[in-house]
């Protein structure tokens, strides 16, 4: 039961590479563009292009490839389940039936749909993980806050929303450690999490999450008091230690992303979508 080892979302790996030094706004916009393209792409070649692009970013930012992908591991069972569902349940009128099993029918369209969903989830996760791995929480906040600032005029509490996000990210690691502790404590008292059938296993999960929730609420309350006594009164009147500025590297990154976007649009028009 090593939960913390596999958590990469919300963790920041400090570094001095060009990716690390990019303005957070550049990185957020780039990640958003990548995500939009992921959701619109419908051909395997397009996904290959995205995979290549992401691999490049990982290499340039000097993050160990294994580390960047480690966070995907716990998601694999869920993804497999999703894939199976798509394979058997997706219906399209004029599609090839691959094989029959009991009352289920696996279709070619279902196979592609399953692949598509898995690829999307995997890449979405990798893109967001890369963003947090190379951007410290505070610069991420500064960037988001800056980008969301126009929304303040229409009454969206952007600064407060972003602060909530920052804190949520900071507590990912802490709560994972806590969960690990609770699980170990219950194992020490004889709970065997890996035994029994599906329903029995599921029942064992509830006594784990209840204490986790209780402790999360306690932590939240303590944090509020601590923030209050450090004069936090919401976003109004705050200043920043670090101000954002666009550098040459940001221009390079912007041009790269533009070229890549063009390429993706071309690929998607030129190639046959698989679904």
């Amino acid at each position: 039961m090593e939960l913390t080892k596999n958590i990469t979302l919300g963790v920041y790996l400090p570094g001095e590479t060009i990716i690390h030094r990019l303005d957070p706004r550049t990185k957020i916009i780039a990640a958003t563009i990548l995500i939009v393209m992921l959701l619109l792409s419908r051909s395997y070649i397009a996904y290959a292009a995205v995979a290549f692009f992401i691999a490049m970013i990982i290499v340039i930012s000097a993050i160990p490839m294994g580390y960047a992908l480690r966070g995907l591991k716990p998601m694999l069972p869920v993804l497999l389940l999703m894939w199976i569902f798509q394979l058997f349940l997706f219906r399209d009128s004029d599609t090839l039936v691959l094989f029959n099993w009991w009352i289920f029918e696996a279709t070619e369209a279902g196979l592609h749909m399953g692949n598509l969903i898995i690829l999307r989830v995997l890449f979405l996760f990798t893109v967001t993980t890369l963003l947090t791995l190379t951007t410290s929480v505070v610069s991420l906040t500064d960037g988001l806050e800056n980008l969301l600032n126009p929304l303040r005029k229409v009454g969206v509490p952007s600064q407060e929303l972003v602060m909530t996000l920052v804190i949520a990210l900071r507590f990912v690691m802490i709560l994972a450690e806590e969960l690990e502790k609770i699980i170990k404590a219950q194992m020490a008292r004889g709970v065997a999490f890996d035994q029994g059938n599906f329903i029995q296993k599921t029942k064992k999960i509830f006594p784990v999450f209840l204490p986790l929730f209780v402790s999360a609420f306690k932590r939240a309350e303590e944090l509020i008091i601590a923030m209050e006594s450090r004069s936090y009164t919401g976003g109004k009147g705050r200043t920043k230690m670090k101000t954002l500025h666009i550098s040459r590297a940001d221009l390079t990154a912007a041009i790269t992303i533009l070229i890549f976007t063009g390429l993706m649009i071309y690929i998607n028009i030129a190639t046959e979508p698989f679904i």
Partner: peptide, 16 residues
């Protein structure tokens, strides 16, 4: 509040 040492230390002065 923040995950990085110096950024957390800056939190209070920023609030001021």
């Amino acid at each position: 509040v923040s995950s990085i040492v110096e950024e957390d230390i800056a939190f209070g002065p920023e609030n001021l």
